[in-house]
Amino acid sequence: MASRDVVRYETPLTRGFRWFSAVFIALYLVWTLLPIFVMFVSSFKDLLEAFKIPAVGDWSGIGVFFDFTPTLKHYRDLFLNLDFSRYMANSLVAAGGSAVISVILGSMAAYSLSRIDFKGKSDLFFWIISTRMAPVVAVMVPLYAIFRSLDLVGTLPGLILAYTTFNLPFAIWILKGFFDNVPYAIEEAQMVDGATRFQAFMAILPLVAPGIGAFIVLCILFAWNDFLFAAIIGSGGAKTLPVATRELVQPQNIQWGSIMAAGVVTTLPMMLLGLVIRRYLVTGLTMGAVKE
């Protein structure tokens, strides 16, 4: 079995390329992290301090950014006056709920599609993804009408159902690829060892964990950041963070401080999720189990 140590050979070209990548990555980090940094810092500033900006080209004035007395008043405002804890709970339930349901249904469907041959399988498979071919806006009106008549508008179950409708096809597509890579012999061995088909399926789930992890991230990100569904189907009873944040922009009064704080509150959980899920995203688990 080959180890995974990479053998490196140094040439002028690779050295040059290393320099180039270092510079590129540095620039890229500034480009992506600076806005988040500004958002983060501004959320702790009073409104007046937040708009103190040095003149263009005045690099020595950069200290102005850090010259402020930190305050938590925007956060207090969000959670005490604006009911953001409820919106956050809504976001969590909607995103988490649809992710869990999509993973359960999706992995079972993907497993069947990967393992069992039946007539019309490829057509079915294509049909599943074709449900995602129309842009969300295009189906919004009929979807609203349906949800309306089912009394699902403005409820969390309605929102979860809406997100699941859109996440499930992805789940099936992503996970089928992962199941295809798990040798069937492993389940056969399980079944001879005394497992039922379902137990054998459960036993190989750890081997598709990278797929499930990747999908959960995608699914939660989709729901968490979604505005369209939340605004239309979730409106009223199931208001989520993006919709609530949007409502901080009022015609006479844009509440910059609260918006920045809401941005932080919305972004942080996703960063945590990324950290937690990262260790499940290791691929190559199936290596070496079966002689090829």
Binding site: A185, I186, E188, Q190, V192, G288, A289, K291
Partner: peptide, 28 residues
Amino acid sequence: APKDRDVAMVFENYALYPHKSVFENMAN
């Protein structure tokens, strides 16, 4: 079903469980 036949098989291609240790493989 295979599980009801009460046979033990050694597979031509091993078919070990890659995410389990040798002990867990044999204990399965």
